[in-house]
């Protein structure tokens, strides 16, 4: 027969186990609830894009902020990425005596993957953070409430233009990134590895297919939307003064970055695995 002590400690152990299960359950519910809120927020924001009145000025401002002002950082990222790819693949492919494949490797990696993903991450750090900080400040200083009292729907005035601009601006940036990425590879291949420039470009153009570029641009549109969504959602719902705005900014960048990588996987499955 088990002693009283053993029964008691068994019950205590059971309780602790149940506590752990409960904690996991609570966290899961919290995550699900958060996802639900973000989805509702996104749906409301998108529905406001298509319903008048429209705010073309706000869209233009957001396009400049997300797209134009991100150009330098995205350009630098793309060109160095192309250079590194060429250099790395040169040493790697040499083991299979397949150095001629450098051009195709660079152009595929850049258009399909690295262009959209790296541009998305850069824009998340720049524009996503700025959006969260701006909307967060507007929230904690009552500016968002003030919009409502002035007959202006803040979801329509603040959020919808940013979502739209995000989905437009990032593909445009990625076009630039694709070109500069290939250029980076070209520079290394010709100046450093001694390839013939004409042949390199020919290899690039012969190998790349429309689908590679298009899939990258679709990815970019999704990533741009996600960056704007996380920036707006976190900023719009921030509370508690300067500190609240700070954590909203961090949350916007981190969540957008994670979502970009997660959606990148999902979209790649959809595009290339059939």
């Amino acid at each position: 027969m088990p002693s009283l002590n053993a029964i008691v400690s068994g019950a205590a152990l059971m309780e602790r186990l149940l506590d752990a299960v409960a904690a996991i359950g609570k966290a899961a519910i919290a995550v699900a609830r958060q996802c639900g809120r973000i989805t509702l927020f996104a749906a409301e924001g998108v529905s406001q894009i298509v319903r008048p009145p429209f705010y073309p000025r706000m869209v233009g401002r957001s396009l400049a902020e997300i797209g134009y002002f991100s150009l330098p950082v995205v350009a630098l990222t793309a060109i160095f990425t192309g250079m590194v790819l060429a250099l790395q693949s040169a040493t790697g492919l040499a083991r299979f005596s397949a150095e001629t494949q450098i051009a195709s490797l660079v152009v595929l990696s850049v258009t399909r993957e690295l262009g959209p993903v790296l541009a998305g991450l850069m824009v998340a750090g720049r524009a996503g953070a700025a959006m969260a900080a701006e909307l967060g400040t507007m929230r904690v200083t009552d500016q968002i409430d003030a919009l409502t009292t002035l007959s202006t729907n803040p979801m329509k005035y603040l959020v919808a233009p940013r979502l739209l601009a995000g989905a437009i601006a990032l593909p445009l940036l990625v076009v630039v990134a694709d070109i500069l990425g290939v250029l980076g590879g070209y520079i290394i291949a010709t100046l450093r590895l001694g390839f013939n420039g004409h042949v390199y470009l020919e290899n690039t153009l012969n190998f790349v297919q429309t689908q590679d570029v298009v899939s990258g641009l679709v990815k970019a549109a999704v990533f741009g939307f996600l960056v704007a969504l996380m920036g707006c959602y976190n900023g719009y719902n921030s509370k508690g003064g300067a500190q609240g705005v700070g954590s909203a900014t961090t949350a916007a960048v981190v969540s957008a970055s994670v979502l970009i990588l997660a959606f990148d996987y999902v979209l790649t499955e959809i595009f290339f695995v059939r």
């Binding site: 701006e134 009552d142 500016q143 409430d145 003030a146 919009l147 002035l150 007959s151 202006t152």
Partner: peptide, 28 residues
């Protein structure tokens, strides 16, 4: 039909003063 002066002003700091003042007129 209501107007509100917020405790801390809550002026839109991305707009010049006159656009702040005219905001409701422009919107309505």
């Amino acid at each position: 039909t209501m107007g509100m002066l917020f405790q801390n002003g809550a002026l839109f700091d991305s707009l010049p003063v006159w656009e702040n003042v005219a905001f409701g007129l422009l919107a309505r």
